Amino acid sequence: MSAPRKRRRGDDTDTRDQLIEATAELMLEEGYAGATTRRVAAKVGVNPALVYYYFPSLDDLFLAVFRKGAEANLERQRKALASENPVRALWETATDARGTALLFEFMALANHRKEIRAEIAAFSERYRESQLTALTIILRSRGFDVEELPPAMMSVVISSLGATLVNESSLGITLGHRELAEFAEDFVRLFEGKPWTRTITPDQPGAGET
């Protein structure tokens, strides 16, 4: 009888990554509640017991999924901020449907898992601090007054508006989205040295007069 095949380091890494990716896909398809150990194992085609070989608990698996995504987001943000048009790249990152949808699932999960809540908070602070440093340099280099247009406010506006568009679109809500997208496009164009094209005027005669 031949001896059992030893598990190679490469096998370990590949299987672990497959379990993480399968969990992320299930969270996107069915919500975090659908990402059970059995469902994850079935999606990868392995025995459920193998999941526990890599992750002692389901929370450990969720944390691994979040951390992998968090590192990928930090790298994507780094590239966006270093690009020729960083503000446009940041907006495109903020409106990424897959990443935003997965983050919302983790936020829902965080309501029941303190460790995951702490992980999200720590990552968000790290992500925003990196963004603030870069935005401050970008704004100043383009002649904007950072007192009049605070980088912190701009960071929150970009991420919040992007998340709102993605979240509402997933629910079938689209009213006002086109107008917001057009406004965001003009806003981004300012940082590319292009003129502001929108004109805002009062609807009623005499409105705004003092």
Rank of each mutant, 00 (worst) to 15 (best):
V188N: 05
E148D: 09
T37K: 07
S57A: 05
P86H: 12
S159H: 08
D186W: 13
Q204W: 04
F62P: 01
A42Q: 14
R78K: 08
I120G: 04
K68L: 03
A207T: 10
L50E: 13
F123E: 10
G31K: 11
R39W: 02
L74K: 07
A72L: 04
V51H: 05
V65W: 08
V44R: 07
L139P: 00
S57W: 12
F144L: 09
A35N: 05
F183S: 03
E30D: 03
F183N: 06
I137A: 12
A152K: 11
T210E: 09
N47I: 04
R128K: 12
E192G: 04
M154L: 14
A70R: 12
D60S: 11
D11I: 02
P4D: 14
S130L: 00
R140C: 02
A72P: 02
V157N: 05
P48K: 13
E92M: 07
G10K: 15
Y127W: 12
A181T: 14
P151H: 11
I173Y: 11
L165F: 06
M153S: 08
Y52W: 09
A35S: 05
I158A: 03
V40T: 13
L139R: 15
R178K: 15
E168R: 08
A118S: 01
F144S: 09
T100D: 00
K6D: 09
A184E: 08
S159Y: 11
M107K: 12
H177F: 05
L190H: 05
E179T: 09
F62T: 09
G99I: 03
A101N: 01
R88F: 00
S124H: 05
L58Y: 12
L175H: 15
G208H: 07
A82G: 02
G208W: 06
D14L: 11
A49H: 08
G10A: 15
L165Q: 11
F183W: 15
E148K: 15
V44L: 04
R128S: 03
M107I: 06
V46P: 02
M107D: 02
L90Y: 08
F55E: 09
R140W: 10
L135D: 06
A49R: 15
E125D: 05
L139N: 05
V146H: 10
I138N: 02
S170T: 13
G31R: 07
Y53M: 04
E92N: 09
T197I: 10
I138L: 14
L171T: 07
D96F: 00
R16C: 00
L175E: 15
S2Q: 09
A70D: 13
F55D: 12
T210A: 08
H112E: 09
S130V: 01
S124F: 09
T13G: 01
E75F: 01
F123V: 08
R8D: 13
E92L: 14
S170Y: 04
A184Q: 12
L28F: 02
I20F: 02
S2K: 08
D203K: 08
R16L: 01
F123D: 05
K68D: 13
E119N: 04
F187Q: 07
A89Y: 01
S160C: 03
